[in-house]
Computed example of a mutant assay.
Amino acid sequence: MRRYARTLVAVALATTIVSGTVGWASGNAQQALTGPPPGTAAWRSDHVLGRELPDPERATPAQVARFFDGLSAKERQLLITRHPLVVGNLDGVPVALRYRANALALKAGHDPRYASLGADPHRRILAFDPRGRGQVAEVFGDLTTARRVSVVVPGSDIDAGTFDRTHDVYGTPAGMARSLYAETGPGSAVIAWAGYTTPVGVGVDAATGSLAEAGADRLTRFTDGLAATGVPAPTVFCHSYGSVVCGLAAPRLRARDLVVLGSPGMRADNVGDLHTRARVWAAKDPDDWIDDVPNVEFAGLGHGADPTSAGFGARRVPAGDAHGHTGYFAPGTQSLHAFAAIADGEL
């Protein structure tokens, strides 16, 4: 009975302090953005090529890739012009076409949240969905020639508006990815993937797995799309609540390595429970407040075992000189150096 009571107390604490990036604030319930890209209805009804276009909801990324492989340059450009939001967000579309489509969509939009994304024509925006709080993916490096690819999956409080904010830079997906890319060797590329609805602040969303489940589906389809276009299996870096997403995605995820940092848990008791062939790594610095989160899972609340614990079985990444919850990718840290070595295949 006493053990049961302690578990209930721990779960209660988990609902008040689990978060992803900003810490001690109230959380608001979020509705996960799921389903096909915006503009799908118009895409489905368009017979401009004289045949049906692949259904964004039903076609696999491999089927999408085969369809685009069979198009002429003129036909590809026609679809980009008519349906930029579909082409730019459809997994399996060639990378260069997605860049062009998203540049067009950003140029046509007028939302100030996305001004920085469209201001620089040299940015490689791999996904841009303006619905809700907005979702974005950006590539650093040349994804079409890269021999080693990494994907950064962020935690709470990240959306299109905070994707590349100028404060707390290494707590943003763009900041983490840019820093990792600068540290990796030639022939690498890093993708900052803010492609799911994240929790806001601290609340039930951050302490449960519902948003992570939806995010896991989107992440697995995203990596399937990379594979369909010839991109090598990536190393996936999962920060905070993003590690819950990665834990749920693990059995289906096309990944060479899974690296979790500042993790509240992966909804697994140990590496074996992840059912993945990827190598699993974990980092947590001494003053990360995530260490105060109870590592429990009860009645759907909490995210389970600490991935850095000895019993979990992950390979430990040194992080003794990282600072706080968002310092793991800071230049000069042991953690960033180790992350780059993992990404480059040197560890």
Rank of each mutant, 00 (worst) to 15 (best):
M266Q: 14
D69L: 14
P121H: 06
E138S: 01
V317Y: 05
L219E: 04
S335G: 02
L126T: 00
G215L: 11
H275F: 03
D344V: 01
A282E: 04
G201T: 06
V22T: 11
R279T: 15
D269P: 05
M266C: 13
P54C: 07
P186F: 08
A127H: 08
L219T: 00
P61D: 09
G242F: 04
R218L: 13
G70K: 07
T197P: 08
V317W: 07
L219M: 09
E346M: 00
G92H: 02
H323D: 14
A216F: 10
T144L: 01
I80T: 01
A115N: 08
G187Y: 08
V259Q: 05
A12S: 12
P154E: 08
S156P: 10
C238G: 03
Q77R: 13
R82G: 05
G313F: 10
R148F: 12
G88E: 06
R44H: 12
L126I: 04
A32D: 11
V11Y: 03
A105D: 08
P112K: 12
A305E: 10
G300A: 03
V152D: 05
P232V: 09
T145C: 00
D344M: 02
F68C: 07
F329M: 14
A338F: 15
V231H: 04
L53D: 03
T81M: 00
A278S: 11
A10V: 00
T145W: 03
V48S: 15
F298P: 00
A65L: 02
S19N: 15
R123I: 00
G225D: 02
V245W: 11
T333V: 04
D91H: 03
A160H: 01
D159K: 00
P199V: 06
T166W: 03
D321I: 11
V260L: 06
L274F: 03
